[in-house]
Design a protein around this nucleic acid. Structure first.
Lengths: 340, 340
DNA sequence: CTGAAAGCGCTAACAT
DNA sequence: ATGTTAGCGCTTTCAG
């Protein structure tokens, strides 16, 4: 085994408890002794064993971070921000991926219990009831999901969806479609509600198509149905779906934005790369990651003062090239076209 | 505190060691007792404390995974694969991001010591000497980096670079540039060597431009220099750089592939989305993530038989739209053009 | 300010 | 097959 507190104690001629204090309560030990201990520790290459410490203190100084899909470009910036922020506060973070499966999600939360001081649940797919139950096992904060009494950071995607629909309506679109997200997604619900409201207010008709897998493939698969729906504007659950939709549409000979306007949600890097560049709702992922860590640390009893138990972050609409004014009679023309 | 092994023991009328055995060596305990213990444990909601277990066994069942930048699209698929693979073997993984800073990299490795059974170092930026020293603190396996005596999984990017240069040469390009990567990058060195070899073999001239930040910005910044270099084909350190380069070039009025051919490395999702779709060297990231975990677990003494201490994974060239035959006299025309 | 002693939750010989 | 007894490395009363 490696060098322990005991080795340091022996080598510096003090008792282990003094060494311990040197690291966990330096002010309780005489400056001279402290320096000596520190020097010896340094020289021996001593590093406190966090697990052992956690055993007595009850705090592991570890956090769990659970997302549906690490490879979904929406998450990495959030993970990166959360990880960096946590590290700056001397916390390490376990990252895990549920593969969009609620059961895996539950298993992971269970597995993290006792391993971590708290977990960040990003856009969980689990039901309210399960979440409420799990909550008693381990403290957590939710990202993009609201549940009574549980701290959360929300990116106000409803607002973004409203802006998107108003943008479309402002361009003159009256027949809109919404490509909804996966079953358990809270965001999908918020987008849908807000879009419906905004559409009604603007006197536009909104058809909901879904649920869809939150991937490019999901969008591509939905393309024929969208084409058949005789709409001129579409709001997709996220950018990946939007990008897939544009691709699928292209294969059907439907051009964006000439024949159909498409807006996404997330503003992932790909949105800017896509041709046409995607009009989309930008999400403050970095701020969300940081804030979530702050809230979690506050929740698990760190002294650091933190934000309130519910933080709502604003979203904005980024208008790019995938939206344009509809052309007269387009809807009719589209609906009568032969589509598989 | 939550429910411990002791609570289970009391409630099921056996000694703690029996409970312990029920979980860590089930075959050593009578089926009836085992079932009873299991039932009680289940009912009480008992979950073993891995940290406590680790204290006595010396194995934490945790892995560390260190990358230069979580938000670089090259890494998420690798992280995802490694995490999933590790979890299937009952290992949790700490993910950390160095922000391309070797000092942070070193700090992280230090911090993970004792916290994990081993660490996966993906494309480390640390020097050989530092790596060799650190290696004595914690077992690790390298991804895309070779160091004597240290297990590694390599994606044969040299081969890919060679294919790329041959592809360019085959198209008729004779004046090539290489946008190299960041200082500490082993991959960048391999690409450079292989590209130089292949260029020489094909009778082409190769200008090295760099080092460059491994980001879109890095490519964009290099664009003027590339334009000035009077080359007709470019191999970039990675897709991000290639994409940034294409953008930067566009701003200077240089079109890809009409005026200049560009090849990237990595085949990230963005490569396909970019216009023109990027010709690039595809990396087997998922296999790499899995293999690295296997090697690491083998290294730290799991019984599972694993692959050898050095695994080289093949890369391939994906030809898309960013490369084409050069047009007569283009190099001269480009070099004489006014470029800032 | 520092030492002594107990114990965190669990495993690992060693007995029985 | 199960109980006993020591710790693992560290923190935390409690004395002094």
């Amino acid at each position: 085994m490696a060098v322990t507190i005991r080795d340091v104690a022996r080598a510096s001629g003090v008792h282990v408890s003094t060494v311990s204090r040197t690291f966990s309560a330096p002010h309780l030990v005489n400056a001279d002794t402290r320096n000596r201990v520190l020097a010896v520790a340094e020289q021996l290459g001593y590093r406190p064993n966090r697990a052992a410490r956690g055993l007595t203190t009850g705090r592991t100084h570890n956090l769990g971070l659970i997302v549906a899909d690490i490879a979904n470009p929406f998450f990495p910036p959030l993970i990166k921000a959360a990880q960096a922020h946590a590290r700056a506060r001397d916390y390490h973070v376990f990252v895990a991926d549920t593969d969009e499966d609620p059961r895996v999600e539950e298993e992971l939360i269970q597995a993290f219990t006792k391993q971590v001081d708290g977990v960040l649940l990003c856009a969980p797919r689990l039901g309210d009831r399960a979440l409420a139950r799990l909550r008693r096992q381990v403290p957590f904060v939710l990202v993009n999901r609201r549940l009574d009494g549980v701290p959360a950071v929300l990116m106000d995607v409803g607002h973004g969806a409203r802006l998107a629909v108003e943008h479309l309506a402002g361009l003159g679109h009256r027949r809109l479609a919404l490509l909804s997200g996966p079953e358990g997604s809270w965001n999908s619900g918020r987008i849908r509600e807000a879009a419906a409201d905004a559409a009604a207010a603007a006197g536009a008709e909104l058809t909901v198509i879904g649920p869809n897998s939150p991937t490019e493939q999901g969008g591509q698969i939905a393309a024929p149905e969208v084409a058949r729906a005789a709409v001129t504007g579409v709001l997709a659950y996220n950018d990946l779906v939007a990008i897939g939709l544009v691709e699928g549409l292209a294969e059907l000979g439907v051009r964006v934005p000439a024949d159909l306007s498409v807006v996404g949600v997330d503003d992932i890097m790909q949105a800017r790369l896509n041709r046409p560049k995607l009009t989309t709702v930008a999400m403050p992922t970095i701020a969300a990651g940081r804030t979530a860590v702050d809230m979690l640390l506050q929740l698990v009893g760190t002294d650091e003062p933190g934000p309130a138990a519910l933080t709502v972050l604003e979203t904005t609409l980024v208008v790019r090239e995938s939206t344009a004014a509809p052309v007269e009679g387009r809807a009719a023309r589209l609906s009568s076209r032969e589509v598989t």
